[in-house]
Computed example of a mutant assay.
Amino acid sequence: MMNESVKLLLVDDDIELCELLIEYLGTEGFDVCAVNDGESGVKAALSGKYKLVLLDVTLPKLNGFDVLKKIRQESDIPVLMLTARGDDVDRVIGLEFGADDYLPKPYNHRELVARIKAILRRGRPVQAEGAAKFLQMDDLSLNLSNREATIDGAPLELTATEFQVLKSLIEKAGELISRDDLTQVALNRRLTPYDRAIDMHVSNVRKKIGTRQDGQPRIKTVRGAGYFYIRP
């Protein structure tokens, strides 16, 4: 149970499901507002009123992917995609567009709450005493107090999940981190069969940070094992 009511936005055209989730998530300490089409979802998500968006893929006016793209153009608010069970393509596309995680329908309500809480934990800044805490690697700098990242002094636009993935890799630079362990430490959950979330997040981070100035990669993939940040 959350200490204070946390405002969530639910974007889904299934009105009965929305009513059910509003009631259930309310018992878990969440204040849920539901909208039933994509255009309304974009407007509400960018209003600054909510801590997280629960976003269905199939929506009228704008589908979930278009909604996510428009949100990511202006905001890094956490987004949990709700996808059809077994539709791996939807999951991959959602993660490529910047979703923090996905959950296939029909889902267990306890699992939904666990995913929401895990995503919200990723976005919490470190409570540092005195000066801000930083991680520095190459020309990358991570401010752990406000979760801002820069590369060669320029702001680096990362979602809370991408920040956590990069932080986890840098903290163990030069060491191989298995997919299982990286999922646990960066996504706050266990790796499940056919789960590609961590792979897509690493891919997104790799694209955003690019290569070193000499053209050498920063992150190495060890096929079938995991990832590590290459020390300079």
Rank of each mutant, 00 (worst) to 15 (best):
M1N: 09
N3A: 15
N3W: 09
E4A: 13
S5K: 13
S5W: 07
V6I: 14
L9S: 02
L9G: 05
L10P: 02
V11P: 03
V11F: 03
D12Q: 11
D13Q: 09
D14R: 05
L17F: 06
C18S: 14
L20F: 12
L21R: 06
I22P: 04
I22S: 09
E23H: 11
E23T: 13
Y24C: 05
G26V: 05
G29F: 00
G29W: 02
F30D: 04
V32W: 01
V32Y: 08
N36K: 13
D37N: 13
D37Y: 00
E39W: 00
V42W: 03
K43I: 15
L46A: 12
S47G: 01
G48K: 01
K49D: 14
Y50M: 06
L54P: 02
L54N: 08
N63R: 10
G64W: 07
F65R: 01
R72E: 15
Q73P: 04
I77S: 10
P78V: 06
A84L: 06
R85W: 00
D88Q: 11
D88P: 03
D90W: 00
R91T: 12
I93K: 09
G94P: 01
D100R: 05
D100Y: 08
D101Y: 07
K105R: 14
P106K: 08
Y107M: 15
Y107V: 09
H109R: 09
H109I: 06
L112Y: 11
V113M: 08
A114H: 10
R115C: 10
K117G: 07
I119E: 03
R121F: 12
R121G: 10
R121V: 13
G123E: 10
V126C: 12
Q127E: 15
Q127L: 15
A128M: 13
E129N: 05
K133C: 14
F134Q: 10
D138E: 15
D138G: 15
N143T: 07
N143G: 06
T150A: 05
I151V: 10
L156G: 05
T159E: 04
Q164A: 12
K167H: 12
I170L: 15
K172Q: 14
I177F: 01
L182Q: 03
Q184S: 09
A186D: 05
A186M: 03
A186P: 02
N188I: 04
R189W: 00
T192C: 01
P193I: 04
H201P: 02
R206I: 08
R206Q: 14
K207L: 12
I209M: 03
I209F: 08
G210P: 03
Q213V: 07
D214R: 03
Q216F: 04
P217T: 12
R218T: 06
V222N: 03
R223M: 14
G224N: 11
A225R: 14
G226P: 05
Y229R: 03
Y229W: 10
I230E: 07
R231E: 14
P232Q: 11
